[in-house]
Nucleic acid binder design. Structure first.
Length: 761
DNA sequence: GTGCTCCATTTTTTT
DNA sequence: AATGGAGCAC
């Protein structure tokens, strides 16, 4: 193994950022060339490793910033990492290519679109748009969309794309049912329809670059040379298309570093292929593997709990996570009558913990399996005046009024976009009814041209007369707005003009309902977002804005500094951490999710999901389940989740401190009905088990130049409490004490010699 | 062509 | 419980 030495030209005063890393982390950071697989257990500091690795590459002049590509799981993660690298290495970090697969490759596609027959202002269709297209095609083929669900067909198309199965290949090799036959017919038309609309769906953003690179080896080589170093986070959740496209890019230099954890693979439902990480060694000869096994996040109790769950999986690589942290509190199980009871109980515990232990609101996360569970928690928290932020769910940009306004804006950039045109040609209603639209559509199909082309000469068409006039007015309006934009009108003014000239705002004002007021507020928020976007950039283009917002991830909206309790799905919580975590709805057929009509569930993936949820917690963890719950407006009895039987009962206790009863008859009506939730006191069993290595190494901080950096006002990070600021200090020498205000934990008094504090800038 | 009312369907998880 | 679609009256 190469030994590390700092370059001599390292400017004095800059932090030696390798000194804070453990041996394995250092190895991962300094192994720069050749394929590298980092197997990073939960909370093992992989973000830190990635950050330092990039900083190290730059510092060693291995590559210029623009030659480094880092594919992260969220855009926010990319932004934050960039910020941290800037702090280490300077402003040139701004040139790094960092972002999600989808946003990075959509950027590349915008440059290269013409080479594969698209315009650079292509629209990105979200799942909804895609399903709309599928539905239309099904109807044109005379299928009953009640029987043949557009969603099902689109899923099949999407799965195929992610596995790089083209429409042609599908037709040849993958038809084994009537449904496949229909899918095959739709698939082909769907692709053509999207191309005519100058639109790509989410999957195309990964598939089209592969087509591009295959058809144009020179373009591939350009990007191979551009991205001399490639890093991929959350590699266990990449699908085949993502695997393929990065393999192509890395083919020339093979400086590819992937980070992942097979125990945290939770996205197979969207095509994620765990074998990408398992086969890395075979894929890349001479690859190095570095395991990160020390957990810096959680207490021993929490890790022990997580470990007891994940070891139930048979298809799991063995690994040992260990921590130097204290045992901590045992996990508390909350048993509730129904979901309202559950929400209230969780809210009460939060109030309690805030009072007793000084936690701030943003120390808490409530994690659930499905989005619809959020509602009761919102109500309960609001009643108790506790601030919360909801992450995910029906996102802002999926609301009808927002999609409508965005559809108008999209047309100004890409008028051939049929889905968005049809969406608003009669919204608000302007006398262009369904019959007229169908007539126009038929014309467009007959001629094989876009709807926009057809309605240019609406006067010549066989369409209901009064509607013709309205279509003409619509075309003129879009033209007018488009021209103004071309002539340099600001985005802010453009949106304003759209809202006025389309009559959209007027229609909302006239409706004058509570509902329409909310919609107006949302639109104003959109206007703000656009103004903000425009202010931040010198040459902000409308299509860049539209592209950016169509690729926003749920987590991008999560603000860890906001003084609020976080509500989100377990999926959305991936990569995050909180001092106190509540995992709620631990019931059979909810968590784990039960098999449904056509979809069977992978119980091992559900278990990994539970593992991910547990390992979000730093200090305190709560499990919660209900005996009954409203489903589809009906009260349903709920059996306790099997995960609660699987978990190491020694680390879990009830609210009263009793050990949890693990019954064999948990699926019987009696148990589910909840008449006998007697608790058994078993203190012997309840004693903490010592299964984890716990080297009691003390962290030492040496100040070479004799300068103690821990002065009042300095920002610091604590091994357990996270980031904070020193607000006072007294004593001297080894007796020096500081008072620190932690973002999540409030004020703490600490002994400087003992506290795991580090200065951050 | 518009808008209202009733009914059916949904609840995985996400770019 | 809530949304969206189909069908019907104006």
């Amino acid at each position: 193994m190469k030994t590390f030495s700092l370059p001599s030209e390292e400017p004095k005063g800059r932090p030696d950022f390798l000194s804070g890393l453990n041996k394995q982390q250092k190895q991962a950071v300094t192994h720069t060339d050749g394929p590298l697989l980092i197997v990073a257990g939960a909370g093992s500091g992989k973000t830190r490793v990635l950050t330092y690795r990039i900083a190290y590459l730059l510092q060693q002049y291995k590559a210029a910033p623009e030659q480094i590509l880092a594919l992260t799981f969220t855009n926010k993660a990319a932004r934050e990492m960039k910020e941290r690298i800037k702090n280490l290495i300077g402003d040139k970090a701004g040139k790094l290519w960092m972002g999600t697969f989808h946003s990075i490759f959509s950027k590349i596609l915008r440059f290269e679109a013409e080479k594969i027959g698209f315009g650079s202002d292509f629209t990105i269709y979200d799942t909804n748009d895609s399903q709309t297209v599928v539905k239309q095609i099904l109807q044109e083929l005379n299928y009953d969309t009640k029987e043949i669900k557009p969603k099902t067909i689109h899923n099949k198309i999407s799965d195929s794309k992610n596995q790089l199965i083209t429409a042609d290949t599908f037709k040849e090799k993958f038809i084994s049912s009537t449904l496949d036959d229909i899918t095959s017919r739709v698939y082909d038309i769907y692709n053509k329809r999207l191309k005519q609309s100058n639109a790509m769906d989410f999957d195309d953003l990964l598939v089209k670059p592969i087509e591009l690179f295959q058809q144009h080896p020179d373009v591939l080589e350009k990007y191979q040379d551009r991205f001399k170093y490639i890093m991929i986070d959350e590699y266990q959740d990449t699908n085949h298309a993502q695997y393929k496209v990065t393999k192509m890019l890395a083919d020339k230099y093979e400086n590819i570093c992937v980070v992942g954890d097979d125990a945290q693979s939770i996205y197979s439902f969207r095509g994620a292929d765990i074998s990408n990480i398992l086969n890395f060694k075979e894929d890349y000869e001479d690859s190095t593997q570095v395991p990160l096994e020390q957990n810096y996040r959680s207490t021993k109790a929490i890790l022990q709990c997580a470990d007891s769950i994940i070891k139930q999986n048979t298809q799991q690589l063995d690994k040992t996570l260990w921590t130097e942290q204290d045992y901590g509190e045992r996990i508390t199980l909350l048993e509730n009558f129904d979901e309202r009871d559950e929400a209230n109980r969780v809210a009460s515990h939060i109030q309690n913990l805030k009072m007793k232990h000084g936690y701030q609101n943003n120390a808490f996360a409530i994690l659930y399996r499905t989005n619809y569970q959020s509602r009761v928690f919102e109500e309960a928290l609001r009643r108790k005046d506790l601030a919360y932020q909801l992450v995910g769910g029906l996102s802002f940009y999926q609301r009808k009024e927002i999609k409508d306004v965005l559809a108008y804006l999209t047309l100004l950039v890409n008028p051939h976009d049929e889905t968005n045109l049809l969406r608003i040609i009669n919204e608000p209603s302007r006398g262009i009814g369904n019959k007229s639209i169908q007539d126009i559509l038929k014309q467009a199909r007959d001629e094989g041209r876009s709807v926009w082309n057809i309605i240019q000469r609406v006067e010549d068409l066989d369409v209901y007369k009064p509607a013709k006039k309205r279509v003409r007015e619509f075309v003129d309006m879009i033209d007018r707005l488009h021209n103004n934009l071309e002539n340099g009108e600001s985005l802010t003014d453009t949106v304003k003009a759209v809202l006025e000239q389309s009559g959209y705002m007027r229609a909302l004002v006239e409706e004058n309902s509570h509902e329409s007021m909310m919609r107006r507020d949302n639109i104003i928020e959109l206007q703000n977002a656009i103004s903000y976007f425009e202010k931040g950039k010198s040459n902000a283009s409308l299509s860049a804005f539209l592209q950016e917002i169509s690729l926003i991830t749920d987590q991008d909206k999560f603000d860890e500094d906001k003084p609020a309790i976080t509500l989100m799905t377990v999926h959305a919580s991936k990569g995050l951490e909180f001092p106190v975590v509540f995992i709620v709805g631990l019931e059979e057929n909810l968590f784990p999710m039960g098999a449904r009509n056509n979809f069977d569930v992978d119980i091992e993936e559900e278990r990994r999901l539970f593992y991910v949820a547990i390992t979000r917690a730093e200090e305190r963890l709560f499990f919660s389940h209900c005996r009954s719950r409203f489903k589809f407006g009906e009260e349903t009895r709920q059996a306790r989740s099997r995960f609660l039987e699987e978990v190491d009962s020694g680390v879990v206790q009830t609210e009263t401190g009793a050990s949890i009863s693990q019954k064999k008859d948990r699926f019987t009506d009696k148990s589910a009905g909840g008449s006998d939730y007697e608790v058994e006191y078993d203190w012997k069993q309840a004693q903490p088990k010592k299964t984890f290595k716990s080297p009691s190494a003390t962290i030492h901080y040496d100040y070479e130049d004799g300068e103690d950096p821990f002065q009042v006002g300095v920002k610091v990070v604590h091994g357990k409490f996270g980031p904070g600021k020193i607000i006072s200090r007294d004593g001297s020498g080894t007796d020096t004490r500081v008072v620190v205000f932690f973002k999540k934990r409030g004020q703490k008094k600490l002994m400087l010699r003992a506290a795991p504090l580090q200065v951050i800038d």
